[in-house]
Every structure is written in C-alpha cells, then in structure tokens.
C-alpha cells in the first residue's frame, strides 16, 4: 500500500528552502515514491549529498542523512557503502556538484561499479550561488558568469557515466515525474552503480535569464523537448536536434564492487587460516 511522501519526510523541517516552482521538490517526490515502491526500511536507507540547492534534500528526509562537502558526496558514499554494504546508499546531487567539482568521483564510482544510486538534479545552473553556468548549461544560455552567452558545450552526462562503467543509466524530467520515479526505483534496485539524470527547472536563475519566466513554462519546455528512447530510435538526427532522450539509456551487468571485495576478504582469510594450520 503506497505511503504518502510525508511518511518519508522530516515534516518538522518543512516547508523546504527551494524557491517557488523549483523542480527539485518534484524530483525529490519521485525519489521518495521510488523508495516507497521498493518497500525499503527507513533504517537501511542512507542519503548523501554534496553542496548546492539539490544537496539540501537529505535534511528533509527521515533516513540516515549526510550533507557533505561540495562535489564529494559520491566519495563519502563510497566509504559508507564499503563499510556497510547492506545499506541502500543514495546520492542526491546537483549538476554543478556532480559534473563539475565532483566529476572525478562520479566517473570513478561508475568505473568501480560500486552499489550507489546517484540522482543528479540537473537544472543547468548553480542555483545556490545565484545563477552561474555549469557543465550542463546549454551553449548560448545566459548566466551570471556567462553574460555574453555560454561558449561551452554541456556534457552528455548519461553517456559519460555509462561510458565510465555504470550498470544502469537513465534520464527523466520533473515534468514526467511518474516515469522519473520508475526510473529511480529501477536504479535503486540495480546492484551496481546506477545513475539517473533528472532534468529539472530553476525559474529563479536559469528561467529568468533565458526567457522562461515561470516554472510552468519551463515544465512545458521539458515536455516539448523530451523524447522517449523508443520514439527517438525512429527519428532522424535532424528531428532530434535540440531534443533529449528520456527513459533507460544504458544497462549492463557487471559485478558490484563491494561483492568483489568480499571475495578478496574470503581469499585473504582462507590463506591466513592455511598459514596458521
């Protein structure tokens, strides 16, 4: 029987700090519905974040929660998962936190295929510091540090993380909230490293500077520019210009890191026993 999201919230800490219309609350709702759909025990869930708007999420969640340093959530989470593999470790991070300062940890955690689910709240801007461009800001967009328009190309973060070795990579949007929660549930249920990029809106900084004044406009933009994977497969390159695919983008089966290390311990202890015998 599905619990309301309030079951997973530290309600005394609400309302949250995110601006009116910010998509982070929608993505967080999707995360909680995903956790609920899997029937996880609150005590076994550990949510880790770095620094930024999205990274304030754990404070509102009734789990083991850890708000770390900018970009390092996945490295902290690696330590938690190694020390206590039975925990469901979920990292909530923004596009700047994960793909800029945190990029090195992101690709290495994927390469190791350690059992961590990372949900990247991608609003293509640094919101907490009020509007600088990020590695996910589209070329040409305006930002406080791109007053002449962003001259950089954003990552395709899902391709990047999948190429690095992740077991499950998907992309969803705040608009397609129900699909997003299903993708996140699948990610959490995946044993290895799983990554979900959640396209979400920052009306306050990205929208205002890039003629999308309201959250509603930004959600409509998401609806009009998102193409489900199956549909995209039938579309030409020209038709896909300016669009992005949503759904499951990459799955593979690789041994999970802490399981592999458990085998190392077994070997080491067997050798030890033989020596002592």
């Amino acid at each position: 029987m599905a619990m309301p999201v309030t079951h997973y919230l530290r309600t005394s800490k609400m309302p949250h700090i995110w601006c009116a219309g910010c998509g982070h609350g929608i993505v967080l709702g999707a995360v909680l519905r995903a956790i609920d759909s899997l029937g996880l025990d609150k005590d076994e869930v550990c949510v880790v974040s770095g620094i930024g708007c999205a990274s304030r999420a754990p404070g509102y969640l009734d789990f083991n929660t850890l708000h770390t340093t900018h970009g390092r959530a996945i490295a902290f989470a690696t330590g938690i998962k190694m020390a206590k593999p039975e925990l469901k470790v979920i990292v909530l991070t923004g596009d700047g936190d994960a793909a800029a300062i945190g990029g090195n940890h992101l690709i290495h955690a994927a390469r190791r295929n350690i059992g961590i689910t990372t949900v990247c709240f991608n609003n293509s801007i640094y919101g907490m510091t009020s509007g600088q461009y990020s590695p996910m800001t589209p070329t040409g967009s305006l930002a406080s540090t791109a007053p002449y328009g962003n001259i950089e190309e954003p990552f395709d973060l899902c391709d990047l993380v999948y190429a690095a070795g992740a077991s499950y990579v998907a992309r969803g949007t705040a608009y397609h909230a129900l699909l997003l929660s299903k993708l996140i549930a699948k990610a959490i249920a995946t044993e290895g490293f799983s990554f979900v990029e959640a396209i979400t809106q920052c009306p306050t900084y990205y929208g205002r500077r890039n003629n999308m004044r309201s959250a509603v406009d930004m959600l409509k933009w998401q609806k009009e520019h998102a193409v489900p994977v199956a549909a995209a497969a039938k579309m030409s390159a020209e038709e896909l210009v300016g669009k992005f695919r949503i759904g499951e983008l990459g799955t593979r089966t690789r041994p999970e890191y802490t399981r592999r290390y458990a085998a190392v311990i077994e070997t080491a202890q067997k050798e030890e026993a033989e020596q002592d015998a």
């Binding site: 550990c46 880790v48 850890l66 770390t68 340093t69 390092r72 490295a75 902290f76 989470a77 690696t78 330590g79 938690i80 998962k81 190694m82 020390a83 206590k84 925990l87 090195n104 940890h105 290495h108």
Partner: peptide, 16 residues
C-alpha cells in the same frame, strides 16, 4: 581516485 576522495571515504566509513 585522489586524496580528497580518500579523506571523504574514511569519514563516510566512520559514520557507518
């Protein structure tokens, strides 16, 4: 992957 990741990981493990 680097020393920053190392200090971060040991703090996480200690919390666990």
């Amino acid at each position: 992957e680097d020393e920053i990741a190392s200090i971060s990981a040991i703090i996480g493990a200690s919390l666990a």
